[in-house]
Structures are given as structure tokens and as C-alpha cells.
């Protein structure tokens, strides 16, 4: 405790966090502030819009926000992302939980192999993953259809307007299930083993141990993985963007973030893009806050 009163520890932490804070301001804070600023403006074109000074930035208050909130395509995109998330998050976390619990069972075989194999897709770039699955979905190269064909069953087209939700969700499940499995498995390994022994002596089956002891103790890790998964879901962009060249079912504004990109670089309207960006970020903050609030007391057992 001698250091507490000294002068060095008072300045040292500030010196240590300074580089990160400076970079954070440059890479995160400044661009975010600039986005908020842009969202309040619009380009006004005078006359034919030719020549210097014919275009100027004018302050329009919350106009861009009103237009974004009443934009039909943006609303439809939000609905599509929610539908996609409703398929993706429960499937991915459900599978991750099952795999983690199975890995934690001593009597299961091929655990090392399965753990690596299931985690491997995490190392594959989303663009590459989307591209691989894209080829696997294409009716011309799809092994699923070759199988169905061999069984004289009608083929399925996952690149159809309805199938596309499953097509995109499958890519995300494939890429994310291993990561979540490892998070949950790491949490499971930190539970004292004697808890299970006690339960076993009391006659609990492995199933009962999993449901009554392991899953409740995993609650904090499940909350965090759900939160990260939902955030990642709302940010979906790369998968549909990469699949788009292969199908007509994916418009360039399929998700809200794709619309932001189109607004900014397709139509050159950075002001609308900025307003939509702020709305998306605000929605994410609100959602995370509510989710943590609702689950905190339960998940952390009042520890905080």
C-alpha cells in the first residue's frame, strides 16, 4: 500500500491509457461527432447546380431524421433484419450451448477434433465464407440439389426471395457457432467440478446436471453472447453484399446498413446516410442498455 500515497501511481495510469484514448478519439469519437454534425445538414443546389458556389450546405435541423424514419425501404430493411435475427440468434446460440455442454461431458469422444472443427469457420473471412456458401447455394453447383436430384426429389433454391433469409442466416450460424461455443465452454470449465460430483452422488443424470446446474451458472456468459450476437445481427452487411452478385433476391438496400452505404456512395447523399447511421447506433445503444438492465440482476446474481 506504500504506492497509494506516492506521486508516481497518480500520473502513471493516465500516461498508460493516453495512447489508447488519443487513438479512440481519432478513430471513434471524432467520426461519430462528425456524423451527428452531418446529419443536421443538407446540400442545397442553386440554379442548375453548375459552377462554384451553386451547392452549399444548409442547416435543416431534424429533417433528415424525419425522412429516414418515414422511409419505407429503410423500414422494410429493419423488418428483414429482425426476421433474419429471429432465425439466426436462437439457432446459433442453441447449437453453441449444446456443443459446449457436450464438450464438457467427460465420456464424449472426439472432443478435441470436434472443438477445432466447429471453431474453424471463425478463422474464415466472412467474404470468403459468403462466397463459398454462395457457390454451394447456386442451383448449378449446389450439392444439396444434386442429392435431392439423385433421390428424385424437387430441388430447393435458397437464393429465392424467401430462401435467402435462411441462406444468409446459415452463413452467420456457420461462422459464429464455434466462437460462442468456445466462450460458453471456457465459462463451463471455470465452474468447480465438485459441484457436479455432489449432484451425481445425489443421483442426478448428466442431463439433469446440465439443465439444473450448468445452464443456470452459464447465465452471465449467455447474456454476453446473446448481446454480442444481437449486435452483430443488426450490423449484417458483408454476407448479403457478397451474395448479391449471385441472386436477384438481394436488393442493394436489403438491410439498413446496406441502405446507409447506398445513400452515401451510391446516391452521394452523405447527409441522409449520416442521419440513418445515428438512428441505427442509437437503436443499438438502447437495445444493449435495455437487455443488460433486464438481465443484469438475474444473470449476475446481484454481484454488481
Amino acid at each position: 500500500m506504500t504506492g497509494r500515497g506516492g506521486t508516481a501511481p497518480k500520473l502513471a495510469p493516465y500516461a498508460f491509457v493516453a495512447p489508447a484514448v488519443v487513438l479512440f478519439v481519432l478513430v471513434f469519437a471524432l467520426p461519430i461527432a462528425y456524423t451527428v454534425y452531418l446529419s443536421l445538414f443538407r446540400t442545397e443546389v442553386k440554379g442548375l447546380g453548375l459552377g462554384r458556389g451553386s451547392r452549399s450546405e444548409v442547416f435543416v435541423g431534424l429533417d433528415n431524421y424525419v425522412r429516414a424514419l418515414t422511409d419505407a425501404e429503410l423500414g422494410a430493411g429493419a423488418v428483414r433484419v429482425v426476421a433474419y435475427g429471429a432465425i439466426l440468434v436462437p439457432t446459433m446460440l442453441g447449437l453453441a450451448l449444446v456443443f459446449a455442454l457436450l464438450l464438457d461431458e467427460d465420456r464424449v469422444r472426439a472432443r478435441g477434433f470436434s472443438r477445432i472443427a466447429i471453431f474453424l469457420p471463425y478463422a474464415i473471412p466472412v467474404v470468403i465464407a459468403s462466397l463459398l456458401w454462395g457457390f454451394l447455394y447456386l442451383p448449378g453447383t449446389s450439392p444439396l440439389n444434386q442429392l435431392l436430384d439423385a433421390l428424385s426429389l424437387p430441388g430447393v433454391n435458397l437464393l429465392s426471395p424467401a430462401g435467402i433469409y435462411f441462406a444468409v442466416a446459415n452463413i452467420a450460424v456457420w461462422g459464429g457457432v464455434g466462437y460462442n461455443m468456445v466462450v460458453l465452454y471456457t465459462a463451463l470449465r471455470s465452474i468447480p467440478r465438485d459441484l457436479y460430483e455432489a449432484a451425481r452422488i445425489d443421483g442426478c443424470t448428466p442431463w439433469q446436471v446440465a439443465v439444473r446446474i450448468k445452464i443456470p451458472l452459464l447465465a452471465p456468459a449467455l447474456v454476453l453472447t446473446s448481446l454480442f450476437s444481437i449486435i452483430a445481427t443488426l450490423q449484417v452487411f458483408v454476407e448479403p453484399t457478397t451474395l448479391a452478385p449471385l441472386t436477384n433476391s438481394l436488393s442493394l438496400t436489403w438491410t439498413p446498413l446496406m441502405k446507409v452505404y447506398q445513400d452515401a456512395f451510391g446516391r452521394g447523399d452523405i447527409y441522409s446516410a449520416a442521419a440513418t447511421s445515428v438512428l441505427i447506433a442509437a437503436a443499438m445503444f438502447a437495445l444493449s442498455f435495455v437487455l443488460l438492465r433486464v438481465t443484469r440482476s438475474r444473470a449476475f446474481g446481484g454481484e454488481r
Binding site: F99, R107, V108, S114, A117, L120, A129, L136
Partner: peptide, 27 residues
């Protein structure tokens, strides 16, 4: 119960592994 445990869970894990390895094998 103990005897059955080795089979099905191992099978489920291997199916998961196969699903994850399939696109890699395909490429």
C-alpha cells in the same frame, strides 16, 4: 444412462464438425 451417453453426444458433435468442415472440404 451412462452407457448411452457415449454414443449420441459424440454423434451430435461429429455432425456439427462435419457441417463446419463441409464448405472447407468443398473449396
Amino acid at each position: 444412462m451412462r452407457a448411452r451417453l457415449g454414443g449420441l453426444p459424440t454423434f451430435v458433435l461429429l455432425v456439427g464438425a462435419a457441417y463446419c468442415l463441409f464448405p472447407v472440404a468443398w473449396v
